Simulated scan of single mutants.
Amino acid sequence: MEIINQKVLRKDNQLLAITHLTQLLSYVTGCGGFIVPLALWLTSKDTVEGMDEHGKSIINFQLSLLLYIVLCVPGILLFGLGILGLIAVGTIGFVLPIVNAIRASNGESPSYFLTIRFIS
């Protein structure tokens, strides 16, 4: 009787919450809110329970925010509607990581609305 490829996933809700909160680095460094969660997801998706689901949702959310920002920039020329869009994207990008960090620390699944699923 031998055991082959037995993976034991550990439950680490604090790391999941920290991964969500690292998205806020975008407000400090500009691109750290994408790179740091990506690195955390890629390094621990096979060892932490739920990291694959949370990591994919974070990366999809960050890519969606980037797309919305790119679409809002030309919208500034259209009666200034792009400015309202940028304010909305900035607010959503600040609030949702905090809400989902609390959800992750409680052991719940992430919930990012207006997210395009680039990675499924």
Rank of each mutant, 00 (worst) to 15 (best):
V70T: 06
P37Y: 11
C31Y: 14
Q62R: 15
D12H: 08
I59H: 00
G107Y: 03
L86E: 09
T29C: 04
G107H: 02
V70Q: 04
K7F: 07
L40S: 04
I18N: 01
A104T: 08
P74L: 08
A39W: 13
I76V: 15
L15A: 14
T47A: 07
T19R: 01
L9E: 13
T29Q: 08
F79T: 06
H20P: 13
I83G: 12
P110W: 08
L71S: 09
T19N: 11
T91S: 12
K7N: 10
L96K: 12
F113Y: 11
L71R: 03
G32P: 05
H54D: 00
I18P: 00
M51T: 02
Q14T: 15
L77C: 11
V48E: 01
V28W: 11
S26D: 13
E49K: 12
I3P: 00
L78I: 15
I116F: 14
S105F: 10
K56G: 10
K45R: 15
L21F: 11
G80P: 02
P37S: 08
L77R: 09
L25H: 08
V28I: 15
L21G: 02
G30E: 06
T91C: 13
I92F: 15
S64W: 02
M1N: 03
T47M: 01
N13R: 14
F61P: 00
V36K: 00
G75Q: 01
N60L: 09
G50C: 00
L114R: 06
C31M: 13
A88K: 03
T47W: 00
T19Q: 08
T115H: 07
N100L: 02
A17P: 12
S120K: 15
G32K: 12
F61M: 04
R10L: 12
L16K: 14
T29H: 11
M51K: 01
E2I: 07
L38W: 14
V8R: 10
N60H: 05
T115I: 01
G82R: 05
S26A: 10
T43E: 04
I69G: 00
I3G: 03
I58K: 01
L71K: 05
L63W: 04
G82N: 09
Q14Y: 14
I59V: 15
F113Q: 09
R10V: 15
V99C: 04
L114N: 06
L86S: 05
A17C: 10
L67K: 15
V48M: 01
F34G: 06
L42C: 05
